[in-house]
Design a protein around this nucleic acid. Structure first.
Lengths: 225, 225
DNA sequence: GGATGTGAATGCATTCACAGCA
DNA sequence: TGCTGTGAATGCATTCACATCC
């Protein structure tokens, strides 16, 4: 009988998986072929036990006495995270932040392709808007009304939401209805979405606020990430 | 005898404080004068007990039978987070992401002023670079060698690091030596900093990777935020 | 020796449940 | 009655420590 993974996986463990992958790719570039849980952990200020336990939630990837094979573990983690294949992503909002996201190389490198850009501003629709970087491609801005047909056609399941805060909830509702399964929300507001929709939030001002607290308060004693 | 706050404050509680503040400001705009822990919690999908306990780490702000006074709690939270006064912030890196950060209104609104921009690219130094938004001010790009005198002069303690991944650690070392106390790191790499330096990281690709996992894996059962 | 994988122990964070106050 | 603030209880996540394997 197969072990059919279904014990509870701590959410923090999944977050760390991405960091392990990032470190492993860096170790790989430096020519490392194997790595121990201790070394991987040290590079991120985690304990060795933490690393082993996190990985063990998903399988047995290590070799006693040896450690983990870097290439192998990279492949395993990509598979677990679902980034062993590419994802088509929609960008909603072609303002400043949206244009910066168009220009960001890090997405392509990880297999996330921005394949369509939408905006509510009728002045932008039909235009080809580029990121600021002239080396990069431009994107045809589509009206949100075309979202459904476009994402169906292109198999888009993820969206980055970079619209003004007042529009965020309404737009979120619409893109979910159109079939989006996961949203990365950049608007500084809390979105209500059905339970089956994945949601992650990036609020830049909140991040600075946290730093403010740490610097003020913990003249000694702040943690880091 | 004063209660001299020094029991341990859970880090997750501090993160939520920022979200409470954001919600309170939204409730204030809608004209609310008081709010209960239940209502505040519901707006963020937290329990009422969570809200009360988080706030109680910092003082007694509520009124039994009434709830919390919105204006008062906003003021208290700003004071706790250190955003009741303004902060001068340095931006390191004037590439695409850097320029998007220059354009982002959300920082000013929360009292964070970008007062200086640095870059290693000698072609950019001395130029006035604007964000893409033509309504906004431009910034004089300075060489990193001037960081120390500029931040001393302007009392800068926080920095946003938007430089390429290969430069990130070296630049971090330099700005810490120059007196920066807190860093918001946008480079997709793990930085080593002394314990007394506050560090927060925003890795956009990691955020998408987490969505990928949630969408793939948890066809039913992902959490949100 | 040097490493993993994992039950058991610890340590944190969240939730419960209720006394107390308006 | 309606709500806060808070010890006590629960539930999670992390760490320990060791059997096991190369």
């Amino acid at each position: 009988m197969e072990p059919t993974r279904n014990d509870p996986i701590p959410h923090p463990a999944v977050r760390r998986l991405s960091l392990y992958l990032r470190q492993l790719e860096s170790f790989k570039r430096k020519g490392r072929r194997t790595i121990s849980s201790r070394q991987l952990g040290e590079s991120l200020n985690f304990t060795d036990a933490q690393v082993r336990k996190d990985l063990a939630y998903f399988g047995q990837f290590g070799h006693p006495g040896v450690g983990y094979l870097v290439d192998d573990l990279i492949a395993q983690l990509k598979h677990i995270l679902g980034t062993d294949k590419t994802w088509n992503v929609a960008l909603i909002g072609a303002g400043n932040l949206g244009r910066a996201l168009m220009a960001y190389n890090g997405f392509e490198a990880k297999g996330f392709h921005i394949v369509a850009v939408f905006d509510a501003d009728s002045a932008k629709i039909g235009q080809r808007i580029g990121p600021f970087d002239p080396d990069k491609r431009t994107y045809l801005i589509q009206p949100i009304s075309e979202l459904k047909s476009t994402i169906d056609q292109m198999g888009v399941r993820l969206a980055m939401l970079a619209v003004p805060v007042d529009a965020a909830q309404e737009v979120a509702d619409r893109i979910i209805e159109a079939g989006i399964r996961g949203i990365l929300n950049f608007a500084p507001t809390s979105l209500n979405v059905p339970e089956e929709i994945a949601l992650n939030a990036v609020d830049l001002a909140v991040q600075l606020e946290q730093l403010s607290f740490q610097v003020n308060f913990a003249t000694v004693g702040a943690a880091n990430g």
